[in-house]
Design a protein around this nucleic acid. Structure first.
Lengths: 228, 228
DNA sequence: TGACCATGACTGACTAGTCAGTCATAAATG
DNA sequence: CATTTATGACTGACTAGTCAGTCATGGTCA
């Protein structure tokens, strides 16, 4: 069979990756700025469409329309649909990782650290467009090894490592009993991930109080807290 | 003429649906039997293709080819691509739910019960084709409200209810300390779900010993076990 | 039993439509 | 005005769904 698109080629070297700064209106500006604005608009629109319909079912015409741009313009910024998708994931994920990685200085207890982390995650990801992106990655990952690899490398493995560090610290300080937990940091983050997926799929059936759930989960790991 | 049935086309004789599909061999059989075999072959093939490429990217020609059947034959069994997908989910999910629901008689401790449950889940779902189906539902759910509804109704809400029952029993018997856990049975199943997704996405990067992880998680909830 | 149809399951070439990607042309810019 | 950037009509590849025709199957009858 002439199976042609099985390629999934590498990103074309030449594409920049900043996601513009000024997301507002203001028609007037110099060329470079306007180009950046357009690029940002395309990224925004593509994100929306890909999340809403998945990769294969998304039409570039729709992205163009939503971005207020002609279809040809998209090809001034991205090589093709596939690499647009892959870049999109990078563009959106990278800043989030950066922000979540910027841990608050390790002042309080390990529980406080993790709680701060969970708070950020709650605010930045769960129930947001970015949460939907995570679902999208889960959905399309197998068909986009490049995306799955990137996500594993940049997000998952780092996240797991960071969590393992915190768990070991917690064990060392006596805050965490279960020593085996350090072997499976996945257990620590599992409810957060489930919350992301739940909100994305079942929010309409049965909304989930993610914040409260995460608190209960931390109580499970650290022991109940006397007060709030 | 395509079959007339409204929503659910049923196999002529209402028997169970085995997924055997002896491909190509054994021409002998009566008509009805062969039809059933073909239907099963189509379901099997469709499952494989949908899991591998997602709904939108799957070609009916490929399903037909894999099933060893002409494209037109598919339309003798299913109304169209969409309802084929929706039926597929039902066909595959229902027997699994049935089997998992058939709990072993409540003999031992709550921990034993849950461990048995987890063992089943491990064997029946994690790392299997059915696990991939779960990922597929997560992927396509938002675009198939009928599928998401069905899955929530038949699998999620039941599962949550069952787990809540077990947790409350565990609390009543003093096996589980954390009373709040009953409010979020999701916490109990989260690692299992994560394991499903992990195996589906990251097995090649970092295989996960799901069984061991679940054990550690149960230790967290029930307290460490003295021996195996 | 063996010959002979009637049935309908099955086929696959075909239609009508979709959509990624192109490129000649137009607009904006400096 | 020369050059860069944007446009959207267009093309070619691809695919869901159709349907006229085929022929194995199972029933009927001498």
């Amino acid at each position: 069979m002439p199976r042609k698109s099985t390629k999934l080629s590498r990103p074309p070297a030449g594409s920049g990756d900043h996601v513009s700064a000024a997301r507002g209106e203001m028609p007037a500006s110099n060329r470079a700025t306007r180009a950046l604005e357009r690029r940002a608009a395309i990224v925004e629109a593509a994100m929306e469409e890909f999340i809403g319909r998945g990769f294969a079912a998304t039409r570039l015409d729709d992205i163009a329309k939503r971005a207020g741009v002609a279809k040809g313009t998209i090809y001034l910024h991205f090589k093709d649909k596939e690499s647009m998708f892959e870049e999109l994931v990078r563009i959106v994920i990278v800043p989030v990782v950066a922000r979540l990685t910027a841990l608050p200085p390790p002042t309080g207890s390990v529980r406080d650290l993790i709680e701060a982390f969970a708070g950020n995650f709650l605010k930045e990801v769960i129930g947001t467009r970015r949460g939907d992106l995570v679902r999208l990655i889960v959905a399309e990952g197998p068909r986009f090894p490049a995306v799955a690899d990137f996500y594993y490398r940049e997000v998952v493995s780092r996240g797991i490592a960071a969590m393992r560090g915190l768990i070991e610290l917690g064990i060392a300080r006596g805050e965490i009993r279960q020593k085996d937990l350090a072997r499976y940091p996945q257990i620590l983050v599992a409810p957060a991930m489930i919350a992301v997926i739940w909100q994305s799929l079942f929010a309409r059936h049965a909304p989930l109080d993610a914040q409260d759930m995460l608190r209960v989960h931390l109580d499970l790991i650290f022991g109940e807290r006397r007060t709030t």
